[in-house]
Design a protein around this nucleic acid. Structure first.
Lengths: 255, 255
DNA sequence: CTTGAACCTCTAGTTGCTTGAGGTTGTAAG
DNA sequence: CTTACAACCTCAAGCAACTAGAGGTTCAAG
């Protein structure tokens, strides 16, 4: 009968789909130790070994480490206690999944942007990616500084909106690298600043702008936030850009 | 200025959030090699090292191995070529995500079942889990045997339906272990068989039953499929169960 | 009896760190 | 000027879960 059949390691590997070296390994660590021919040392697997291996595969599938598998292997029944450990695993898997999803979204954003722009300066792109990467830290930072509602609103933005902002950001960076050096009052520079501010405002929306305006920015440790988002600009470029914004602000105030 | 600031490894670690031993490691493998004080050997990190580390973290976030990170680190711009490698990564992440999702569903099913049943015999549970695990293989098998439509229909079933079937299966297994030994014609045994067949039929639905009935089962290599789904029953139990089903079939035919 | 596939053991390599031992350097207080 | 102590150094080993390879033995068929 089927139950009495013995298998060489090759047959067993074939039947179960587990590679021979892995079976050797499982033997070595005591997870699945088949009978051995005492003269030749060849492994002899039987029906029970199939069952055991199926248990091992099942537990691995549920996400258990081989060590835990070894412990669970001898349990004759699953009870509520075990359910607790399963719930724990579920949570671990959940967060792993979230991490993967974030990476996937980041990659998609990068792909879209590179596709539409052709070639993108690596400094600019890395500042984008790094920003995505630390999005949750930025959120934490905002929550810590009691502007939770702003954090909430930002994370609710759709992927399209974010990609649109990415593109604006890249466009701006490109233009800026071209215009850098011109006087800040130059009409082209002022035009760029205008475009930039307008897209940022339209991304944020009126409500958020209002909330931000009512927040005392001085009190916040902005330096900390800046550490999270690398600037793709040199220090001089950054300084020039800030001056250009100031200049723009003064002009609009006057009007 | 900020750009001229130098950092000890401790400060650098603090600022970037990367543990010191990891920085040691990155130095060792040539990924991030800061200046060194020639007399003391102490590492001195500068602004450029922060930028480099941000690149490293970004690329890791996108899913690249440290070896690939080392290669990409020196690219000055991202172009379409790089997009190909990104797409590849996206696919890898996608399949990883799917695997996790499957495991999560499996765990959820197990949790639900254990919660409602209290204690479940491990043989029964493992046969369920192993079945979930090999669901895609079963599907492949079906597709290979030209019963693709059946495979499609089965994989479309909702999670609730599957859980319901799981429960039926466990109920049946329990009852069976109790009734085993009684004559197959016993009314209780026949009752159990009736319940079992009815739930299976209601899970499959009329259409699928029809399709299955029209398929020549003899031609299929059923042995192969059975290898994929471990039975939680001993051989004798299995035999007894088959006889009971045959008996039931005969009786219903007569009516 | 020979040939070749299948099997054996043992060692080392993989990835991305982490941990630890044992020793040196930098800094601040007494 | 010592002396404590933190921060740093190097080098080695350990982790998980295998995978790969060398070099030798056994089995099955012809």
């Amino acid at each position: 009968m089927k139950k009495d059949k013995k298998y060489s390691i090759g047959e067993f590997s074939e039947k179960t789909g587990i590679p021979i070296p892995t079976l050797h390994y499982y033997d070595e660590i005591g997870l699945l130790q088949p009978e051995k021919n005492p003269t030749s040392g060849h492994r002899i697997y039987n029906y029970q070994d199939i069952i055991t291996l199926q248990k091992i595969i099942s537990l691995k599938f549920l996400g258990y480490s081989l060590e835990k598998v070894a412990n669970l292997l001898h349990e004759s029944s699953f009870n509520i206690d075990l359910n607790e450990s399963l719930s724990l695993h579920l949570k671990a898997l959940e967060s792993e999944k979230e991490k993967i999803e974030q990476s996937m979204q980041a990659i998609k954003r990068v792909i879209t942007v590179v596709e539409e722009e052709g070639v993108v300066d690596s400094a600019i792109l890395f500042s984008l990616i790094y920003g995505m990467n630390t999005e949750h830290k930025q959120k934490e930072w905002m929550e810590h500084h009691e502007i939770t509602n702003i954090a909430e609103e930002l994370s609710k933005k759709s992927e399209e909106d974010k990609i649109a902002l990415d593109k604006t950001f890249i466009q701006l960076s490109k233009e800026m690298k071209q215009l850098y050096g011109k006087p800040v009052a130059d009409s082209k520079v002022q035009e760029m600043i205008k475009n930039y501010l307008e897209s940022v405002f339209s991304f944020l929306g009126d409500e958020l702008i209002q909330q931000l305006a009512n927040t005392n920015v001085e009190e916040l440790n902005v330096q900390e936030l800046e550490n999270m988002i690398p600037s793709p600009f040199t220090e001089e470029e950054q300084k020039w850009f800030n001056e250009a914004i100031e200049c723009y602000m003064k002009q609009t105030e006057m009007e």
